[in-house]
Each structure stands twice: as C-alpha cells, then as structure tokens.
Simulated scan of single mutants.
Amino acid sequence: MTTRTALVAAVLFAALAPAAANAQSASGPQGTWLTQAGDARVRIKSCGAALCGSIVWLKQPIDPNTGNPQVDDKNPDPARAARPVLGLQIFGDMRPVSQGKWSGHIYNADDGKTYQSSISHTGPTTLYVEGCVGTLCGGETWTLAGR
C-alpha cells in the first residue's frame, strides 16, 4: 500500500466511522427479542419518539386447557381479557432517558398488571428489561432473535 493510498484509506475511515457508530446507536433495540424464559418473542420498533413492543411469537400459542389461542385472561378488564396474547402490545411509551436506556411502562400478561419499566441495551445481542412496583424491581435479560 502506498503512502497516498494509506492516507486516503485513513481519511475515509475517519469520515465514515462516526456515521456508522451514530447509525448503530440511533437504531436502538429495534428488532425481535427472545424473553429470558424462551417462551415469547417481542418485536420492538420505533413509534414516533417512543419504542413499542409487541408479542410476535409464543412457545405455546394454544392454551392447553381450552384448545384455543392464548388470551389475556389475567387482565382485570373483562373487555380486554379475551384479546389474543399473540400480537399484544406490551409497551408503547418507552422513551430515551440516557444512552442505551429507555423508560416507560410494560404490561405483564402473566399477571394482568402494568409496571414502571426500563429497557437497557446491555450488549449488541442483549437487552435488560426491568419492571418496578415502588422501589421493588425485577428484571430479565432478553436476547436478540433477529432483526
């Protein structure tokens, strides 16, 4: 490689590297994530200035007790208790609070409750999802299932 070629390559790299880094960090956690238990996949996408997350796959999509698709039967609102879990939006108001972290609310179909929540990008293929009631918090790590 000649000095001139090396110089041109260095200048191109210097010019393109920040753009690539910004594009990657701006994209956030959009994609499809497998829950820690491996029983559901959640697709996260941009919804205006916020992030939305919907259940797009269930390990057990059919309720073994009824033979019908799983429904949101733990929801205390009778009008919502019959809605399908597959396709259910579990969050829609996650807003950025710092680099790699979003905060809002998350709905838990396992108990029919909504919690204060945050999601944090902990690595290129991991996302930490946390829910809180007052000062008590619990969380789990989701892994990237595909984009």
Score class of each variant (00 low, 15 high):
126 T>H: 06
2 T>K: 09
98 S>V: 01
1 M>Q: 10
44 I>D: 03
12 L>Q: 05
62 I>M: 11
127 L>Y: 04
83 R>I: 08
81 A>F: 03
77 D>V: 06
40 A>P: 10
8 V>M: 07
56 V>F: 02
94 M>S: 05
142 W>M: 04
129 V>C: 08
95 R>G: 03
147 R>A: 15
145 A>S: 15
49 A>R: 14
68 N>G: 00
89 Q>R: 14
147 R>M: 12
20 A>Y: 09
128 Y>Q: 14
110 D>K: 13
45 K>G: 10
35 T>L: 13
68 N>C: 01
32 T>A: 11
73 D>Q: 03
84 P>R: 04
72 D>Q: 00
137 C>I: 11
73 D>G: 00
95 R>A: 12
107 Y>D: 04
108 N>C: 07
89 Q>E: 12
89 Q>D: 02
28 G>D: 10
38 G>A: 10
127 L>I: 07
140 E>L: 07
43 R>I: 00
126 T>E: 13
35 T>M: 12
56 V>W: 04
98 S>Y: 04
129 V>S: 09
28 G>L: 11
40 A>M: 10
27 S>D: 15
14 A>G: 15
76 P>N: 02
91 F>M: 06
112 G>T: 03
37 A>V: 03
120 S>E: 14
124 P>V: 09
30 Q>I: 15
39 D>Y: 06
103 S>I: 01
50 A>P: 05
14 A>P: 03
84 P>D: 02
138 G>I: 09
133 V>L: 14
1 M>L: 13
36 Q>G: 11
48 G>S: 08
36 Q>L: 06
76 P>V: 01
6 A>C: 07
113 K>H: 06
51 L>V: 10
21 A>F: 11
3 T>F: 09
99 Q>V: 04
77 D>R: 02
68 N>H: 12
36 Q>Y: 06
131 G>A: 12
133 V>A: 13
8 V>P: 01
59 K>Q: 15
102 W>V: 02
1 M>I: 11
19 A>E: 06
42 V>K: 07
60 Q>K: 13
132 C>T: 09
109 A>K: 04
16 L>A: 15
130 E>V: 15
66 T>C: 08
82 A>N: 08
50 A>F: 04
85 V>D: 05
24 Q>M: 10
144 L>R: 15
132 C>F: 04
122 T>L: 07
59 K>E: 13
88 L>I: 03
76 P>F: 00
4 R>V: 13
24 Q>S: 11
